[in-house]
Design a binder for these strands. Structure first.
Lengths: 193, 193
DNA sequence: ACTGATATTAGTACCAAGTGCTAATAACAA
DNA sequence: TTGTTATTAGCACTTGGTACTAATATCAGT
């Protein structure tokens, strides 16, 4: 073999392309001091697509992900049981688009969104807003996990129009998230229609 | 003029390309029932680059702005300034889809998502997770509002791998959201490469 | 040193999706 | 009718490739 082994060159080639997909065969040839043809043979053996295809891949991934950034739905997660002003339960299936690509762990704001949605839903009022919340992400959640979140109304202060809700999310019975939410509501106890 | 006015065609052309940069001149020519040359003249007048350049632009946006701990497409809101392990700033434009239909007030979890994304991004580490947070929604935010969120790293505990980040969101200079986030990071101070 | 296998290089034709340029029409308006 | 704007056509050229063939190198084993 020449400069170094073919194997070694191909290893480095994969790496180089991985961290800069925008590099052309010509640039690679110069960098590794071999002919353009060799680079092409290498790419074939490693089944690395050509520059334009690589770029297109990167571009379309951005596009897909853009849509998935944060759901627009009324409620995050599906409410499966509710007793207004008392308790509520929702399910949220964590998918690939909810996790960090790098480590596969769900982004906190999706768990928060489910909890927050449920806290709003459990309040029997036209207008319910989250005023304050204290939350803890107890354990990482991953793609494929089914998160079950339970909301329990634990207190109500008529004067300030406040309602306290306790949220607990579990995956397979294990607690992954807990939070206490202070909710604001427009109407007091007697005012509901 | 022919089918419709040139102006109208160009308006639609811009739009079409904007929401699908992957379309070729030939496809556009068919769609608008004009020749490929006309499409090219239109692109020139509108200074819209060719397909391959457009794709490259989309792709490089993801790449250029890559923040170490978080790819840009995973962030809610646009990061406009960042100084790793120190401070960061992001903008989030509240649209109709982010608010409650009933009262036009933004759902809390969107504000939380922006803050949480920024807290993760400001940490100079491969893995950053939110462990705990204490937040307050100070004032309602509405569609059309531009929320500017500032993250400031206020403390770091090497032993527990924890970093405390203070978040403040404002609309027109008025504070609408504040929060304190406890973040977990994998690497300690000396361990970064 | 000779042979075979593997690796590398060279060269050609071809492709997609363009740019740049010139020139011919077509359509419309005064 | 003339001038202006719009549209179409055609050709050479560009990038960054693919597909394929063929010639060399390089090395390992006998």
């Amino acid at each position: 073999m020449l400069r170094r082994t073919k194997k070694e060159r191909q290893r480095q080639l994969s790496e180089t392309i991985a961290d800069n997909p925008f590099v052309t065969d010509e640039q690679l040839a110069t960098q590794f001091q071999v002919s353009v043809q060799t680079i092409r043979l290498d790419r074939m053996e490693l089944s690395i697509p050509e520059l334009r295809e690589r770029i297109k891949d990167v571009a379309s991934k951005t596009y897909e992900n853009e849509v998935k950034s944060l759901p627009i739905d009324e409620v995050i997660g599906e409410i499966i049981d509710i007793e207004l002003d008392n308790r509520a339960l929702s399910i949220f299936d964590v998918k690939e688009e909810h996790v960090f690509q790098r480590n596969g762990i769900a982004r906190g704001h999706h768990l928060f969104a489910q909890a927050n949605s449920l806290a709003v839903a459990v309040i029997d009022d036209e207008l319910a807003l989250t005023v304050h919340s204290n939350i803890t992400f107890v354990k990482p959640v991953r793609a494929g996990d089914r998160v079950i979140t339970k909301a329990i109304v634990i207190g109500r202060d008529e004067k300030n129009h406040r309602t306290k809700v306790e949220l607990t999310s579990t995956v397979n019975g294990e607690t992954v998230f807990v939070g206490e939410f202070d909710m604001y509501r427009t109407k007091g106890k007697g005012e509901q229609q």
